[in-house]
Amino acid sequence: MTTLYSAYGLRLASEVALPELGAEITTPGPADIEIVLGAAAGPSATATLLPLGLWVDGDRIGVDVPDVGRYVCEGGSRIVVEPVVAVEPGVLKLFLLGTALGALMVQRGHLVLHGNAFRVGDACAVVVGHSGAGKSTLAAEMHRRGHDILSDDVVPIDAHGCALPGWPRLKLWQDALDRLGIDSSSYDRIRGSHAKFHVPIDRPPLGPLPVRWIYVLDKHRGLLTITPLAGAAIFTSLHEHSYRKEILVGAHRQTHLARSAALVATVRPARLDRPRGEDSVVASADAILADITQSQTKKDHHATSR
């Protein structure tokens, strides 16, 4: 059975049930992306084999996940999923909605970052960082303060420098839920016995929003600081925090560079260094919002002084 869903402004016709994406679409119209279950051909002899089970083979990007299955993205419009026998549905969807859909968005020509995006007025800020950096916890704090979350984990940015809205949910660990005072008993675990959960969030319908700020999360032994990024450091950070950067080879690498160059011209990138061993979520949110306010004030002052 095929069900229609919406994500990133696209219509997905999926043979895999994906209630995480919200209510199914009932309005008529063609699908932008097909997700089908079946035999998925592996890489050819000329494919580029990459770490983490990834491979690029012409207009196909694949990932082979041990004990889960094979996912093959074809031409930016189709994902073939071949699960192993008796794989947990939640685990199968974890890689489908993460690695596979992220790779498909790369095929569609987007700059795809590993982070989250939250709304600030008529624009948005993107927070990136390595796994475990606290991106989703920070997004939850921004949502608590009234900022709509566009996307969590996979953030596609189009050729116009706009972040595309994903589905309304966060992936949060138990300790993050505890600090927010949220009971996890009604939420689905992301994988097996891991204490990480799909947490639905309320938000109005959103379209693509221009990215105006990018913050790179990091930790050091000093105080919490925000440092603007400039020059080659910007491009290094955008590559380092691209979602599944291993697939950025050949034409995908060229597109990534072009999208990065265009984005750099319109955003204010900075690094947020936080003290190691401290719970700095609230302080980090305070610092980012203060930095955004300061940059807007400077921009308004510059505009009126012309």
Rank of each mutant, 00 (worst) to 15 (best):
M1W: 09
L4P: 00
Y8R: 06
L10N: 06
L10D: 08
V16S: 03
A17D: 05
P19G: 08
P19S: 05
T26K: 06
T26L: 06
T27Y: 08
A31F: 04
D32H: 05
E34T: 12
I35G: 08
L37D: 05
P43A: 13
A45G: 10
A47W: 08
G53C: 10
W55A: 02
V56Q: 02
V56K: 01
D59N: 09
V63L: 06
D64M: 05
P66V: 03
D67I: 04
R70Y: 09
R70L: 08
V72I: 12
V72S: 10
V72F: 11
C73N: 07
C73E: 12
C73T: 10
G75L: 03
S77A: 12
S77R: 13
I79M: 04
V80G: 05
V80L: 11
E82D: 14
P83T: 04
A86H: 15
V91M: 09
K93T: 02
F95N: 01
A100C: 06
L101E: 00
G102C: 03
V106Y: 03
L113F: 01
G115T: 08
A117N: 12
G121D: 15
A125F: 07
A125L: 13
V128Y: 00
S131C: 02
G132W: 10
A133E: 09
G134F: 03
G134K: 01
L138T: 12
A139K: 00
A140C: 05
M142P: 11
R145T: 10
H147I: 03
D148Q: 09
S151I: 07
D153G: 06
D153I: 07
D153N: 09
P156D: 04
D158G: 02
D158H: 04
C162V: 03
L164I: 07
P165K: 03
P168Q: 09
P168M: 05
Q174F: 04
L180Q: 14
G181E: 00
G181R: 02
G181N: 01
G181H: 01
I182S: 02
S185C: 07
Y187L: 06
R189D: 04
I190T: 11
R191T: 11
R191E: 13
H198V: 02
D202L: 05
R203I: 04
L206M: 14
G207W: 02
P210N: 13
Y215N: 09
V216T: 08
D218N: 09
D218C: 05
H220N: 12
G222Y: 09
L223M: 11
L223A: 14
L223H: 13
L229S: 14
G231D: 06
A232N: 13
A233R: 14
I234Q: 11
F235S: 07
T236N: 13
S237A: 15
S237K: 06
S237I: 03
L238V: 05
L238W: 11
S242T: 09
E246C: 00
V249G: 06
Q254H: 08
H256Q: 06
H256N: 01
S260V: 03
A265G: 04
A265D: 15
T266D: 09
P269L: 10
D273Y: 10
R274Q: 01
V281C: 03
A285Q: 06
L289E: 15
L289P: 13
T293V: 15
Q294I: 14
S295Y: 14
K298W: 15
K299E: 15
H302F: 06
A303Q: 12
T304G: 10
